[in-house]
Design a protein around this nucleic acid. Sequence first.
DNA 1: GTATGCATCTCGGGA
DNA 2: TCCCGAGGTGCATAC
Lengths: 262, 262
Amino acid sequence: MDITNFEIIPISPLDSAVKRLNATIREKMIIIAGRNNAYFDGRIKSKLENGDRILVIKKDLSIILHGPLGVKPLNWQKPQAGPIEFKIENSELVMFTRRKKTKETLSISFPILNFIACWHAHDESELVIYGDESDLVRYLVSNPDLIEPGFTVIRTEYSTDVGPVDIRGISNQEEVIIEVKKRKANPQDAHQLKRYIEYFQNEEKKKVRGILVAPDFPEKVLKYLEENKLESRIIHWETIFPILKRPTESKLEDFFNKKNGE
Amino acid sequence: MDITNFEIIPISPLDSAVKRLNATIREKMIIIAGRNNAYFDGRIKSKLENGDRILVIKKDLSIILHGPLGVKPLNWQKPQAGPIEFKIENSELVMFTRRKKTKETLSISFPILNFIACWHAHDESELVIYGDESDLVRYLVSNPDLIEPGFTVIRTEYSTDVGPVDIRGISNQEEVIIEVKKRKANPQDAHQLKRYIEYFQNEEKKKVRGILVAPDFPEKVLKYLEENKLESRIIHWETIFPILKRPTESKLEDFFNKKNGE
DNA sequence: GTATGCATCTCGGGA
DNA sequence: TCCCGAGGTGCATAC
């Protein structure tokens, strides 16, 4: 690993910089800081007058333009953006790309250039996550009493015409289907559950109970569930996947080992 | 505007860099490039072994960690992340933050540092967009014949217990409610419409037609609509907001003027 | 390729 | 503040 692979490109003469940039696309990550304006046309039209922003172009041809605030980029292009071209227009650096399939275009001009760099970044590591919805479902399947005492799981990810049912089971000789959400329930969740119930009643001529599992329920959702004879069950993921004081603690490893070990 | 406000911070001595960084949080955008590992614990747990990535910390305390691929950051924190602290641990630069309210933590260590900079970025411009769903609804309201000849709009954004109805109108003396989507319809859209229809039939004892407007309909969605006596109407936003060959063309301005002028 | 649903979704608007 | 839905959603996964 060569530490010098992070390389600052002189911003002048500009034509040399443009040559370097065009040669570097697809090879290295490009980072440009400067005052710029941006125009996007595609699924939406957007314009952005001059402001100081960071432009990142990755070697998969994804493009990200970040302003001084917020997590979400101001403009972007998904990977394989289509040909990216740097050029000089009215003595300003301009980046232009047009995605062939969708015809969408993004054009960014830099009246002021502060900084250009490229970087041969290597990253073989994969982001490993634990504690998403599927992990919560797995946990509930292993601990069905959390849903209710005596609950028995029959199937998970049971596929129906109206979508996959998270958990299907039996409780007190009655069939139950369960929709699991890791976040606060919303009206659409309740409706999704109703859809499943309707499916079983219409297609399979079966009477089933429906339970929506979530850490929290707004009043409106509870009302809707009640009106439709559906049930709610509060289950906090935090009691199952407690947040550690420091994520580097060895205990975090335990969680990941649990995921792999199952 | 001082062009020198983009400032490269020497990576050694490291303790000086750390001091500079801690003094710069909330003041300037910070950009760090280097090989790092990252641990997040909160709504989910994630671990990321060493790889070359860019870390951006904005003055609103949003944090973004980008790897070499994709538009989506590997790790991030929303604005007002909570106190951000740089320190040296095992002679490595470490960034740590813990959000008070949610207790979630993000820790990033840099075994290799390639580059540190800070930037007093100014951006007074707002992203102006045209052609989102609300613009499409506005256009349809002005051109109701696109929905069907003789259609008359009564209200838009009509609020009900089950959510706001995009367009409410009358056609051939029959009430019609319309749900507008700019993107391809999906099963949930069809269900959302059904919810509205049920609301009118149950609460207001009114029989109403329901139309889902979208540029494209998967077969399954069409089937569901049909089964529930709902209608589909194909309307391509592209015929209304055509994509320009170059987004900087003066014609793009026309679109934005239209938005403001209405 | 299309279809579908989760997401540390983010973000803005409205009550 | 919470609630709710749009999004240039991104993205993985199943088909």
